[in-house]
Nucleic acid binder design. Sequence first.
RNA 1: GCGCCCGUAGCUCAGUUGGAUAGAGCGUUUGACUACGAAUCAAAAGGUCGCACGUUCGAGUCGUGCCGGGCGCACCA
Length: 675
Amino acid sequence: MASSLIADIKQRVIGIVREQFNLELDDFSSEIPPRTELGDLAFPVAFELAKRLKAATGEKKNPRELAAKLAAGLSHIPGVAKVEIAGAGYLNIFFDRTQMFSQLVNQFSTTGHRPPTTDKIIVEHTSINPNKAAHIGHVRNSVLGDTVVRILKATGDNVETHNYIDNTGVQVADVVVGFMHLENKSLADIQALAEREVTSRADSFDYYCWDLYARVGQWYEEDKTRLAIRAQTLHEIEAGNNATSEIGEFISSKIVDCHLDTMARLDISYELLARESEILHLHFWAHAFEKLKASGVIVFETEGRNKGCWVMRAEERVGDGESGRAGEESEHDADKIIVRSNGTVTYTGKDIAYHLWKLGKLGLDFYYHPLRKDHRGNDVWITTGDDAAASANRPPFGNGTAFLNVIDVGQSYPQANVKKAVMLLAATEEEKSKVSRSAHLAYEKVTLSADAAKELGVESDGAVSMSGRKGLGVKADDLIDRLEANALKEVQARHTDISEEEQKNIAHKIAVAALRYFLLKYTRTSIIAFDFKEAMSFDGETGPYIQYSAVRANNIFRKLGRPPNDVQGDLASATAEQINGFFAGESGNDLWSLVYFAARLEDVARLSADAFEPTHVAKYAFQLAKQFNLFYHHHHILSETDDTRKMLLLLVADVARRTLEQSLALLGIETPERM
RNA sequence: GCGCCCGUAGCUCAGUUGGAUAGAGCGUUUGACUACGAAUCAAAAGGUCGCACGUUCGAGUCGUGCCGGGCGCACCA
């Protein structure tokens, strides 16, 4: 919230340096001092200045003396209470606590905004192969994507959320093979299986397919010639309009339903499900091919290893130049084949076509119809290749200015090629700069700790990769069930006076908090070794811990008998001297550090949005919760006898409470009324 | 061979564009509840930030070279 103030101070410093030292300073860094006593903002600018002066005049200057000269010129800035020199030459700024606090009390959105824009960023996440139940690794993708969407929206972006459905891929084919060749089931049999009433999670259709998929993998292992059946099945699914593709269509649609149900439990939804079958049948590739050829992004090789292929060439060709051994090709070639010599297109080619559509550059569109309502009551749309089934009044999907793809880090190479091709096709510099915001939001996988693997029946020394092929993994619904059951036990032990329905509702929110925070507390590039004990914990650095501190804050107001927004109006009854006194001294420093930390949500949200890294918000929320708990223990508000002090303590609690709830909301975590 | 990621406390991990005394959770030890509900808090112990040079007033952060681990580099998706 202090960003304009920071910019103001920087301009002043640059002016002083220009006047007194005849030097033109560029932008310089600011930081937050390690302790509240040192101020709210620090500029190490005197160190830089000393270096510049030495370079200009050859004379060595003491940074501390330089800082003093700068400080002298920084008096009387509105919002700044004090400027000090500290350490070896830090210029430390103390904000006007009374003014900032008053602003914060009356400010309701603290996440900040970008300037209004018509730009639209299309975020694709989840994109699970629709052939079996979702596991914890898939959930990492969905939670990351969903949280990035929340943070981007909160900081002012227009976002459209897609979930890509690879309904014509090998993984679907494998389950089709399982039903047709291992179980000799007809479409009607499979439909009966999928739609029967089940009482146990283990009997649900996506769990059934989970096991079947593993059995098919085993079946191929026993006799490799059976892989020919897979190839044939895949071919029929891709072609469409046959008995096999109908089975594939049914299975994948049913599993997509299961996935949507699973994700809804974590408060995750989508605006559009884009299916691969449409990309195939509506001939997206043929259009993209013409554009790529016409623009020279891909070229036809008439000689060499890639003879007969259309390739996208790497910028720097291996073996070029005089010093290199020209003609002798390296073992690996950086050029990417887009169309094979037999005329078929590679996955990267299809993905380029899809991404040209995302940016409105393909000249073709899907047909759409609403698939179902999500848990919030909004329509979830899905693509269709059948214009007769299309809905006329659909939202304006696609035509984004940039895309963001949440896909595991293993896909970095093809993703880089997709972005490269799309950038090469951008027409203007302006468009290029907008498209360049596109990114592959790469994240590392979730593996199983040795303990978790053991619990699932696999002995190992260290972490073990999950494997759908082997049927090894922690299913999302199982984990959520366990979290909810554990949370319910805790809630029941604490709250016997509320209905079972309400208890379950609270337990659900706690379970979601635990799981989402567990997946967000790690940076994207860190491999998560999944451990049941850690993931199921409600203590320490966990979602429920943060919820608990927000609930504590709420409890103060409930006990008080007044809602927070009522208390906010009381601030006017305090004089500036009273508020100054409140924030003075050692105790005042502690109170101020909580308030000042709460004021930083906007900066953190922005940092998180720019880096597409939700963990910054997660870590911030936890630190804020910790600080609030500290405050909670130091100050027993309701027994405070000084009315003004009590009122100000309530307002501090309210600022923390609001910021905690907003931070949690950015993480997709709700704050229960009680817990 | 080339490219990317990781290496920080016993374990799991944070650490803005280089900044002040390297942090947190778990675990261990020891304390604090007839309550704004202890799903909490306080305290202690625990570090050659993989190694070595270099750049800098200043390096966990930047550069180079090693060591160790993971993943890519298909006319697979």
